[in-house]
């Protein structure tokens, strides 16, 4: 039995759900939007165990052989929570306990929380990216305009984006506009790499690459078409290696093929929205994800 936890309206989640249905796979769907009416029990005796209750169904989480998790900020779905006491329970604890199970279970988890966390700091993750042999753009976190101008003089042009996993629109830095702010907090600026954006989805040792035809700084927010592309063998191998080193089963790796042909790795997304890159309508990444989820299926144990 496979556990799916996410939002049905999420295109990526939906693509996995559709493939599972087509294959008549046994799965339990837990709607993230119903987190306020979901509960989890954790017990340490006789051994550590987790039970998930959704409606009238009480499920032993250890009876799941695999899980695909795409949680969102649960606070957006807390309306209707019976008990508003924030410290003693509710969606926050459901989330915490489910993540705890996902971290420690023997089931196949896409992806484990500790592996997911490697993307909470882009610079922290970049250390592992470099260890895999990728070039990474040089970065500076600073609140000092003089340092940022020196960094700009060295690299010609800079972009800025968030340091954390909070999504931000990548933009070209305008240091004059920054100067007009007066004082500002530490920001992440990065050497701008000019070239072609590639998105590489890795599932285990399988690699599906596509490239953007957009010249926009952040192609995700521009009109663009994604086309399938081939990666050099060594780059594909580095993507697989990076995914493995980060502890991930599935990743969405952002590469930039610079004008001189060099490949830079910008980051590895541990919860990639591969539904948005389904350029051929074949849901190829979703199929690979389901292949992985179905690797060790076992029957569900129901308790009441």
């Amino acid at each position: 039995m496979i556990l799916l936890w996410g939002l049905e309206e999420d295109r990526t989640f939906q693509s996995v759900l559709n493939v599972l249905r087509k294959r008549d796979a046994e799965f339990t769907f837990v709607n993230h939007a119903s987190i306020a009416s979901t509960s989890v029990k954790f017990s340490t005796t006789p051994t550590l165990s987790y039970f998930l209750t959704v409606g009238d169904n009480k499920l032993d989480l250890d009876s799941f052989s695999a899980a695909y998790l795409r949680p969102y900020d649960h606070r957006l779905y807390e309306e209707g929570t019976a008990d508003p006491r924030p410290t003693l329970g509710g969606p926050d604890v459901v989330y915490h306990l489910l993540m705890s199970w996902a971290e420690h279970t023997k089931a196949i988890i896409i992806n484990r929380p500790s592996a997911d966390a490697t993307n909470h700091s882009k610079l922290f993750q970049s250390v592992t990216i470099r260890e895999c042999g990728f070039s990474v753009p040089e970065s500076l976190v600073s609140n000092d305009l003089v340092s940022i101008r020196e960094f700009e003089a060295k690299h010609g042009s800079l972009i800025y984006k968030s340091m954390s996993c909070v999504r931000s629109i990548v933009k070209v830095l305008d240091t004059d506009a920054l100067a007009n702010l007066g004082s500002f907090g530490p920001i992440l600026v990065q050497q701008r790499i000019r070239g072609t954006n590639l998105r590489v989805h890795v599932v285990g040792s399988s690699v599906v690459a596509c490239q953007s035809n957009s010249t926009a700084i952040d192609y995700r927010y521009a009109e663009c078409r994604m086309e399938a592309c081939e990666l050099p063998t060594n780059i594909a191998a580095q993507c697989v290696d990076l995914t493995k080193r980060l502890g991930l089963i599935v990743s969405g790796i952002d590469l930039m093929r610079a004008e001189d042909g060099q490949y830079y790795c910008l980051e590895a997304n541990p919860n990639p929205a591969f539904g948005a890159y389904d350029h051929d309508g074949m849901s190829s990444v979703a199929h690979l994800v389901v292949d992985r989820l179905m690797e060790s299926n076992k029957p569900l144990q129901m308790t009441h």
């Binding site: 040089e138 500076l140 976190v141 340092s147």
Partner: peptide, 12 residues
């Protein structure tokens, strides 16, 4: 970090 001068480089 927020209010005094900070310069953090990566990878160096």
């Amino acid at each position: 970090i927020a209010l005094e001068c900070c310069d953090i480089h990566c990878p160096n």
